[in-house]
Amino acid sequence: MKMTLWQQAATIALCSLSTMATRFLPFIIFRDGERTPAFIRYLGRVLPGAVFALLIVYCLKDVSFFRYSYGLPEAAGIAATLILHKWKRQMLLSIAGGTAVYMILVQFVI
C-alpha cells in the first residue's frame, strides 16, 4: 500500500471534515434566533423541488443513453414507479414495484 497509516487517517479525516463543512455551513451562517435574509428564506421554500429533481439526475448520471441498453430499463423502472404511485400513492409499494421491474429487466431481459 502506498499510504502510511497516518496518511490514510488524514485522508479519511479530510473526507469527513469536508462532508461536515457542507452539512453544517448553512446552520452556522444562519443561526437560530437571528433573522435569516429574505433571499435565503425564499431559497429554503423553493429549493427542495429543484433538489429532488437534481437527485434523480444524479442517480442516473452514469446511464448511457446512446449505447445498449439506451437507458430503457431505467426509463421502465421510473415509469413503473410513477404509475404505481399515481395509482395507489403508497410509497413503499411504488418503490418496491419500480425496483422489481428494473431488476427483472436487467437480470433476465437485457
Binding site: G49, M103, V106
Partner: peptide, 30 residues
Amino acid sequence: GLDFIMTAMFVTIFAEQWMKEKRHFSELAG
C-alpha cells in the same frame, strides 16, 4: 439492479413534492 431502489425512492419523493405544489418552476429548473 437492487441499487435502483434509491432511484425509485427519490422518484416517489419527487412525485410527492410535485403533487403538493401547483406550480413547478423549481422542479423544472432542477
